[in-house]
Amino acid sequence: MHEIEMNPSPKVSIKFDGQTLQANEGETVAAALLRQTHLAFRTTAVTGTSRGPFCMMGICFDCLVEIDGVPNKQACMTYVENGMRVKRQLGAGDTGVFLSDEEDTQ
């Protein structure tokens, strides 16, 4: 990583797999993670191999992560917000979170 000098922007902090990291307001989750040299964001549902961002413009769907409990979010299309909880998405995701009764509110 080699950072180019930018006009200063406010910082926000997000969590990635429980670890707190700083990000610039107005940047995407993918950019924030790449700045910390996290290249692998998920494993595939088909074979479980590692993937990370590829196109950075919302069309390849390889940067899918879980954001604030919602799976299949495009990290390159989601902008950081203070306190955001981002998790690597493993395979097709985890059923556990869905089957709890608190989710069942409709």
Partner: peptide, 12 residues
């Protein structure tokens, strides 16, 4: 679908 299976709300 979402009424029957709340899990589906986040499905894409």
């Amino acid at each position: 679908a979402t009424a029957m299976f709340p899990i589906m709300r986040h499905a894409t």
